[in-house]
Design a protein around this nucleic acid. Structure first.
Length: 772
RNA sequence: UGGCCCGUCGUCUAAUGGCAGGACACCGGUCUUUGGAACCGGGGGUGGUGGUUCGACUCCACCCGGGCCAACCA
């Protein structure tokens, strides 16, 4: 289960959204959906399907009139449905909320939280500062509320030209998050919107429109990709300050799908289409859903890929092999087999009468249950095989046809190459072969096994076809963003005009999948293929074991790889060549002095450095010490470890509630052995949550500990009986399993068992030394 | 140079502080009328250094590496 599904389960358990799961898929209709969107679609719509009563809205995020078109909306709907998802009645447009959004903006202005800025674009940019320097306030920042209200109304009424004013949130021009430096909320744009026409001269910005649209639709989980992490702060800020109804939607980010050899920038894809490098959004080389569909990739394969890739926050890059696997795995089940000769080489069966024809039958699907039936393969004196299935000087391991060698024509018979005929240029133009009638239909008499098996077609019965050998779009896995065109794979659209197919393929309607045996999976082009001219796109090649062997052979010949030099940076050493101590990473002299004092008190190096860096913890340290003067080292350790941890993980923990005296007492009690470290942690959590003295907190929490040997051994005996294989594995040397048994004891006792006793007993019982 | 986020087999991804597991790729084998498919088996991993803990992929600190943010785009 991924982290988003875990989060939703948790929300369902705690009733955060009253049991509702409402997601949304919010594309901007400024281009076509691509494989990257597929991940988001599968996630959002998948989540809705998984939960009873769950919904996923399709919302067109159409707040920029200059880039959006109705045709893109239609394409998006088509592509989402093709993937197998349905939004039902929940089709929305951000542009339908313009009136509501406008009113929300008035609320912000009214609260003094938004203002009309009349600076130029350049001025705004300059005053924003940089990531390391604060911005400066706009001279228009303190306009009176009524002026703002009036100006904004007039902006809405269309009184001002583009770029003359913007509406901005009034937050903080020195904010460390650049996005929070008075973000723009509205801009003036006298453009015709594809749905709203000329009704609106002002348009909301993404940050303003998105959170509010989510809120209007009562979305619960607003999922987006990692690059919006920084925008979460403004998302929450806006919902809070317009007093959006609770519970409010919450944004969660996940890693986008990044696939080797693919780009998913709509802007760049659009550019490739515009410049004619691609023949449209649905060019079969394109990573768009329309392109993939036309190439023959199935929605099932795309969904399988998304399942394989998972959902996480780590930046990741998916191996292209995963995509290919998903496609092959699906097509293997659904694509009937056929013979296709891409590069024909004539074969004359010298012993076969010229006018004669016989029919061999072959299964449409191999190894199957016969439901797919059989196909007919006419055979005669003149055939074609693929040129690459013959080698005049075969490389080692090659077991297809060679001069004097034998090969099996699949489903027909074995032939032997007797004569190689060449044309004037020295190129092989024809093979004269003899055939063995005994081997007809695949019978192999006398135990004579022929290793090579190749496909073929009968010369006068084959049907011609155009085959587009679609290949990966780029030559390199990670095309450089500044030179996409230069990285294009010139081979990705290779066209073979004169391919020959077995006759049964002749009537294939557009949009039919085939596996052309030994070549790969192909799909008759939905647009260009017709009865008069068959056109097939290669969806994916077969997995190529031969290529792998050739590769290995080459590696063997070229010797072993050079040893890899470990560079210093990779092993965590600074460029200056030495490892910095915690002390050295301290900045000021004051900090260094404090560090020295702590060290002389007996505080460890690591703890001292941490304490110096954390003023709040340091203050607690100083205040707690009088209560336990000898315990400097322990107090420091508690502060930098358990205390910091509780602050980071527990929402209810408030350091202000912690009485330093209680902390001192706590640490002393642990050191004195009055309570265990574990129990100490429990008490500390209580102290952080509710305050009070050590004695009070200690009395308030349940500190019972099961140390009783009889109870623990009985439990362990049960566990050993329950998991005999684990116990055996432990005895066989998998000592890591001790933790498994101890863990189970802890779980069964609700965390109350004494882990030391449990560990000791588990060891004794497992090794059979159970005299205790 | 700031803030936020992220580092687990080659790749993607799991593991309430308690067995480092799965998938793709790779290698080997069985079978096979696709150098395909199927089936079986194998190797391979927690970025580094400290710390806390009975026990750390998980918590703490620092270091190293990567990503995002300075559009009147989304």
């Amino acid at each position: 289960m991924d982290f988003i599904r875990s989060m939703i389960s948790r929300d369902l358990r705690t009733g955060k959204y009253g049991g509702r799961v409402v997601t949304r898929f919010p594309p901007e209709p400024n281009g076509f959906l691509h494989i990257g969107h597929a991940k988001s679609i599968c996630l959002n719509f998948g989540l809705a399907e998984e939960h009873p009563g769950g919904r996923c809205h399709l919302r067109l995020d159409d707040t920029n009139p200059d880039t959006e078109k109705a045709e893109y909306v239609e394409a998006m709907k088509r592509d989402i449905r093709w993937l197998g998802f349905e939004w039902g009645e929940h089709l929305y447009h951000a542009s339908d909320y313009f009136e509501q959004l406008y009113r929300y903006a008035l609320v912000l202005i009214d609260k003094g939280l938004a203002y009309v800025d009349s600076s130029t674009m350049e001025e705004i940019r300059e005053r924003r500062g940089t990531v390391t320097t604060p911005g400066v306030n706009s001279p228009w920042r303190d306009r009176p509320r009524d002026v703002n209200l009036d100006l904004f109304r007039r902006m809405r009424d269309g009184e001002f030209p583009d770029g003359s004013h913007v509406l901005r949130a009034k937050i903080d021009m020195a904010h460390r998050n650049m996005i929070m430096r008075d973000p723009l909320l509205y801009r003036i744009r006298h453009s015709t919107h594809y749905r709203q026409g000329d009704d609106w001269p002002i348009y909301p910005m993404y940050d303003f429109a998105h959170c509010l649209s989510d809120s209007v639709e009562r979305v619960t989980h607003s999922l987006c990709t990692l690059e919006f992490e920084n925008n979460r702060e403004i998302y929450d800020w806006l919902l809070e300050h317009v007093d959006a109804p609770v519970p409010r939607p919450e944004q969660t980010e996940f890693a986008p799908l990044v696939l080797d050899y693919v780009i998913t920038s709509k802007r760049k894809l659009k550019e490739l289409v515009r410049t004619g490098h691609m023949r449209g959004w649905d060019d079969p080389r394109m990573p768009t859903l329309a392109g993939l569909r036309r190439r023959g990739v199935t929605p099932e394969a795309i969904r399988a890929l998304c399942d394989m890739v998972g959902v996480a926050r780590a930046q990741s890059r998916v191996d292209f092999g995963k995509f290919e696997f998903a496609v092959r795995d699906d097509l293997n089940r659904r694509a009937p087999r056929a013979f296709c000769v891409l590069d024909p080489l004539k074969v004359v069966i010298t012993g076969y009468p010229a006018g004669r024809e016989e029919i061999f039958r072959a299964p449409r699907m191999p190894g199957g249950d016969g439901r797919w039936g059989t196909r007919e393969l006419p055979f005669g004196r003149e055939l074609y095989i693929d040129r690459e299935d013959f080698a005049e000087t075969p490389p080692p391991g090659f077991h297809r046809l060679r001069p004097g060698g034998e090969v099996r024509l699949k489903y027909a018979c074995t032939i032997r190459c007797d004569v190689v005929v060449k044309d004037g240029t020295g190129r092989v133009s024809e093979l004269r072969c003899s055939f063995d009638p005994e081997t007809r239909g695949g019978v192999a008499p006398k135990g004579r096994r022929v290793r090579g098996i190749i496909h073929w077609v009968k010369a006068d019965r084959a049907v011609g076809a155009e085959i587009r050998l679609i290949d990966r779009m780029f030559r390199v896995a990670e095309p450089p963003p500044d030179d996409i065109v230069g990285a294009l794979n010139p081979e990705s659209g290779r066209v073979v005009a004169g391919a020959l197919l077995e006759p049964g393929v002749a009537g294939a309607p557009p949009g039919t999948h085939y596996q052309f045996e030994r070549h790969g999976y192909f799909f008759s082009d939905p647009k260009d293929s017709c009865d008069e001219r068959l056109v097939f796109n290669r969806t994916v090649t077969m997995r190529d074991g031969w290529a792998g062997r050739v590769r290995n052979e080459a590696a063997r010949v070229h010797g072993t790889r050079a040893p890899v030099a470990l560079d210093d940076e990779a092993v965590g050493i600074s460029p200056t060549g030495h490892r910095r101590s915690p002390e050295e990473s301290l900045g000021s002299h004051r900090d260094k002095r404090r560090f020295g004092e702590l060290r002389s008190l007996g505080v460890t190096e690591a703890a001292a450095a941490s304490l110096v860096r954390s003023p709040a913890a340091l203050q607690l340290f100083d205040a707690a010490r009088p209560r336990y003067p000898q315990g400097a080292e322990s107090i420091a350790a508690w502060l930098v470890n358990d205390f910091t941890r509780l602050l980071g993980s527990d929402d209810g923990a408030d350091p202000a509630r912690l009485d330093p005296a209680a902390l001192g007492d706590l640490v002393r009690a642990v050191d004195a052995g009055e309570i265990s470290h574990r129990q100490g942690r429990t008490v500390l959590a209580a102290l952080l949550a509710r305050g009070g003295s050590f004695a009070e907190a200690r009395a308030a929490v349940d500190l019972t500990e099961i140390g009783d040997e009889d109870t623990l051994s009985a439990l362990l005996q049960e566990l050993v009986a329950e998991y005999p294989d684990k116990a055996a594995a432990y005895r066989a040397g998998r000592t890591g399993l001790l933790g498994f048994f101890v863990g189970r004891v802890m779980r069964r006792t609700d965390g109350k068992a004494d882990p030391r006793a449990a560990t000791r007993l588990a060891e004794a019982i497992l090794t059979g030394d159970a005299k205790l």
